[in-house]
Design a protein around this nucleic acid. Structure first.
Length: 510
RNA sequence: GGUGACGUGGCCGAGUGGCUAGGCAGAGGCCUGCAAAGCCUCCUACGGCGGUUCGAAUCCGCCCGUCACCUCCA
């Protein structure tokens, strides 16, 4: 094993790639990473862009664990709908979850709580399907209303917030560091002009002291989700939930905070303002942000018809395309998180192949271990070097393309040796595959051993054709064998002849 | 308008002062009854123009182009 690489990430706060140095260590000197990653608002099925962001967090955790670090990984579920236009515009505007409830898809839900529950469950299913690490805690905003109210009260008490007839606002003026993360928000005039340039309606609460001030609590006794507070019925502002939940599970000063690039401003800027005004300590020392993906070269949007949810790909037909979720995972990892990423069907197709190849090699190694042919290990060193390369790549600001390249090189090496794998080499290869899988999660699921898509489990008619074809080949009736192959391909199967006879697998249609 | 990125072979995508990334597609080969899969070999590029340097895709300057964010968003 080569010397342990230094884990470094681009830090939005310092605008450079910084080595990650957790503030805490366990008794034996092991670094302990305390990490908070912003989760989605559950008003719809998660889309592939959401998951690109969650995958960044996933890789950070996997890399830290591969380095032997302790990790506490918290990622939230935002199940409170926040205003679509927040406080800059009409504060009586609808929120996203209310909107979803009133949409056509929303008709089947009894109420907004029902909708939130449904999409939360869908999120967790997709999460597991894409083989993301389970967080240590997955707090929900609605289950942390009281600490949010207490935080708002405290902010009023220490002079960082004030009340108007419509709500409670954070006073940006009271926090001189506002803007240190995003480089924005220093200049109230520019903010208003910027919004005007986007031809947004600039309608502020007339009692707001500064256009930059943002809502901590909205007074609204007609809202579909409301709680009682010292200021009457209403609901919390968007930014306060993450500050409060991060504090609750990780303490007032955490190591690393991550999310999508859109969250830099205003969400994370506002989180910093609230959290640091409460604790007087730096909220997070490192900030990592994932760049938005594009689809076929364009911004993903419903109006362009290129908007894809995770289930569009992995759900069984006809709702989805019945793809191996790991292929979607690999596709989303195939670009570095901080670079523009263009999601294309070509890339998806390539990655279906790559996952299949890794799984084929995995099966090959299993067979070789079972056979346990004599001989010394002759690949271990080269495989170890490839694993070190993959880990070093991830440590270098999550260079996933380089890490994946190392994985594929190893697969090629094993494929080249093929059936000449002896037992000793196969065991080393299995260790390597396990390590690569722990790092990238692209060969098999970590949690539930994949048993769902057993390739043997084909329909009766398919098995009959396979048997018939094997018989025809044994009898050297190649005309018949070729006709049967054509028939199987017609039915959507890839046909391969092996020493064990005809093998088939589902042809990927995307 | 403000801020920040990016432009690498037919395509995707690493690298970032001299040393083959990797993949897809394409060509040839091994294997195969023929295929498929797999493996081997080949395909050598860095937006433009200047500059620094023994040497630049890599550093500097200018220009061109693409994209993102700027209170809906992962």
């Amino acid at each position: 094993m080569a010397s342990t690489p230094t884990f470094q990430l681009y830090n939005t706060l310092t605008r450079r790639v910084d080595p990650i140095e957790p503030a805490e260590q366990t008794a034996d000197g092991t670094p302990h990473l305390r990490f908070y990653s912003c989760g989605p608002t559950v008003y719809a099925f998660a889309h592939i862009g959401n998951f690109r962001s969650f995958l960044t967090a996933d890789l950070i955790v996997r890399t830290a664990r591969a380095l032997g670090w302790d990790t506490t990984y918290v990622t939230n579920v935002t199940d409170v709908g926040h205003l679509t236009d927040d406080d800059m515009t009409d504060p009586s505007g609808e929120d996203r979850m209310v909107k979803a409830l009133r949409s056509k898809e929303g008709q089947r839900f009894a109420n907004i709580w029902d909708l939130a529950r449904y999409y939360t469950e869908a999120l967790l299913r997709d999460w597991r399907a894409l083989n993301l690490q389970e967080p240590d805690v997955r707090p929900r905003a609605t289950e942390h209303i009281r600490p949010q109210i207490l935080a708002v009260q405290q902010l009023i008490e220490n002079g960082h917030a004030y009340e108007t007839s419509q709500g409670i606002y954070f006073s940006v003026e009271s926090f001189p560091d506002y803007g240190k993360l995003s480089g924005r928000g220093q200049d109230a005039e520019a903010l208003v002009e910027g919004a005007a340039a986007q031809s947004r309606d600039v309608v502020t609460d007339p009692d707001k002291r500064d256009p930059r001030d943002f809502a901590l609590w909205k007074k609204d006794d007609a809202h579909l989700m409301q709680w009682h507070s010292p200021w009457g019925w209403g609901f919390p502002g968007w930014h306060i939930e993450c500050s409060v939940m991060a504090n609750e599970y990780l303490g007032p000063s955490i190591d690393l905070h991550a999310g999508g690039e859109d969250l830099i401003f205003p969400h994370h800027e506002c989180e910093i303002a609230q959290a640091e005004s409460l604790s007087g300590e730096p909220f997070a020392r490192y900030w990592a942000h994932t760049r938005f993906l594009q689809v076929e070269g364009e911004k993903m949007s419903k109006s362009k018809g290129n908007f894809y949810t995770v289930r569009d790909f992995i759900a069984p037909e006809p709702e989805g395309r019945d793809l191996d979720p790991l292929a979607l995972r690999l596709t989303l990892l195939s670009g570095q998180y901080r670079k523009p990423f263009n999601f294309t069907f070509d890339t998806l197709r390539d990655n279906v192949r790559h996952v299949q190849r890794l799984q084929d090699v995995d099966a090959l190694v299993d067979d070789a271990m079972a056979e346990d042919a004599p001989g010394d290990d002759f690949l271990g060193e080269r495989l170890d070097a490839l694993y070190d390369k993959a880990l070093a790549a991830l440590c270098d600001d999550l260079n996933t393309p380089a890490a994946i390249a190392a994985a594929l090189e190893g697969a090629k090496m094993l494929g080249g040796v093929g059936s000449n794998l002896n037992g000793a080499t196969a065991r080393r290869a299995k260790d390597w595959l396990d390590q690569i899988n722990a790092l990238l999660g692209i060969i098999r699921h970590d949690e539930t051993p994949a048993s769902a898509d057993d390739p043997e489990e084909e329909g009766l008619d398919v098995q009959a054709l396979i048997d018939e074809r094997d018989a025809a080949r044994a009898a050297k009736d190649y005309e018949r064998a070729d006709a049967l192959r054509d028939a199987l391909q017609e039915m959507g199967y890839e046909v391969m002849d092996t020493p064990e006879g005809t093998q088939v697998r589902r042809q990927v249609r995307i």
